[in-house]
Computed example of a mutant assay.
Amino acid sequence: MNYTLQQLRIFKTIAETKSITKASEILHLTQPAVSIQLKKLQEQFDIPLTEVIGRQLYITEFGNEIAQVSERILNEIQTIRYRSRAYKGQLVGTLRISIVSTAKYVMPYFLSGFMREHQGVDLQMDVTNKAGVIGSLEENAVDFALVSVLPEQFDMDMVTLMKNKLFLVGSKAPVEKGRNVKKSDFEKLPFIFRENGSATRRAMVDFLQANGIRTGKRMQLTSNEAVKQAVIAGLGYSIMPIIGLKNELNMGSLQILPVKGLPISTTWNLIWLKSKKFSPIAEAYLEYVRAEKDAIIREKFQWYEGY
């Protein structure tokens, strides 16, 4: 037999997802490439690894056994890689981070330099909402989390990174140029909200309630990116963090609308449980953030400070 590690990795992913399409997305490969490697692996066995019933892909009993063996082989290869780097005095292992969805526009810039410097470190980053981040902390499943609203139920330490600013945005102004959007204007505007559990939604709702503002038609979407695309398409208006709107603001597909009391300003904080026992990787990353954060903000987020 002459199967490759790539074939085993692909088949393990197919077995986990029960889908060539999903496996190709996870592995960042084309569907034809995944199908070809599956076919080459199958050619080395007389017993089917998969079967298709209707349009659904199923893994055979034999295929499940091969998937389990593949996982063990790939884990051993990973162990060899870690041990090889450890003998060279390099950091090895996984850095685990949970972030709220809007933080995907922030966190990568505070990771890229560290990951380049430490080739033996893998990254596992869960992008979720505030409720998901809290769950990760409760389960001690992560080293760090990045949030703009601090959870109140934990005893935490933190490093403050940068401001998070939320403005009213739309694809076009609902009032004449130069005039603020007033309380009476909001009642005519279709408004797009994030889902329950989102810190962005909480900030928006708090602002509207504190100012006695009622909006027009309401819509709810489950990601910041979905809200952004809906606002660009003219479905409605929203109060959004502008950290993810740089290109849209520059191109004019979105504009900030002046409203008394906005922007809402919070702070991005890298947090961790005070009782957390850091691994060498987590300790090294915290040192990196403390040393480099000001330079990263100056280099990558200078545009943002002007708003």
Results as ranks from 00 to 15, higher is better:
Ser70Ala: 15
Glu139Pro: 02
Lys188Gln: 09
Met1Phe: 07
Met125Ser: 13
Ile99Glu: 08
Thr160Phe: 03
Asn269Gln: 10
Leu137Val: 13
Leu262Phe: 04
Leu41Gln: 03
Leu137Tyr: 03
Ile66Leu: 11
Leu221Cys: 11
Tyr105Ser: 11
Ala33Trp: 12
Pro32Gln: 05
Leu27Trp: 06
Gly93Glu: 12
Tyr3Met: 01
Glu51Val: 12
Tyr288Phe: 14
Leu189Met: 14
Ile242Pro: 02
Glu51Cys: 11
Ser101Thr: 04
His118Gln: 11
Pro32Tyr: 09
Asn196Gly: 12
Ser171Pro: 08
Phe11Glu: 14
Lys104Arg: 09
Gly93Cys: 12
Arg214Ile: 08
Glu51Asp: 14
Asp294Cys: 01
Val52Thr: 15
Thr128Glu: 12
Ile271Gly: 04
Ala23Pro: 03
Pro241Gln: 08
Gln78Leu: 14
Lys130Pro: 04
Lys104Leu: 04
Ile20Trp: 14
Gly252Thr: 05
Ser98Cys: 05
Ala86Tyr: 15
Asn75Gly: 06
Val181Cys: 04
Gly120Val: 02
Glu76Ser: 15
Phe114Ala: 04
Trp303Asp: 08
Leu49Asn: 07
Leu91His: 01
Ile281Ala: 05
Glu25Leu: 06
Leu235Ser: 10
Phe207Gln: 14
Met240Lys: 00
Ile59Arg: 09
Tyr285Gly: 11
Leu38Val: 10
Asn64Ser: 14
Ile26Asn: 06
Ala284Pro: 03
Lys130Asp: 09
Gln56Asn: 15
Val205Asn: 05
Leu270Ile: 13
Ala173Cys: 02
Lys163Asn: 09
Ala67Pro: 14
Ile66Gln: 03
Thr215Trp: 07
Glu51Trp: 11
Gly212Trp: 05
Arg72Val: 11
Tyr109Arg: 03
Met251Arg: 10
Thr50Cys: 05
Asp143Met: 07
Arg201Tyr: 04
Glu225Ile: 06
Ile47His: 00
Tyr87Ile: 15
Ile232Leu: 00
Phe186Lys: 07
Ile271Pro: 00
Thr160Asp: 10
Ala284Gln: 08
Val149Asp: 07
Arg96Glu: 09
Thr13Asp: 03
Ala291Cys: 07
Leu8Pro: 01
Pro108Ile: 05
Thr222Ala: 08
Ile239Cys: 00
Met240Phe: 02
Leu5Cys: 03
Lys228Glu: 08
Leu49Pro: 06
Ser35Lys: 13
Glu25Lys: 05
Glu152Phe: 06
Leu150His: 07
Tyr237Gly: 00
Gln255Phe: 12
Phe45Leu: 02
Arg55Ala: 04
Gly63Leu: 08
Asp185Arg: 09
Gly132Met: 07
Ala15Thr: 05
Lys183Met: 04
Val133Lys: 01
Gln44Tyr: 00
Ala233Leu: 04
Ile80Arg: 14
Pro190Gln: 02
Gly197Gln: 06
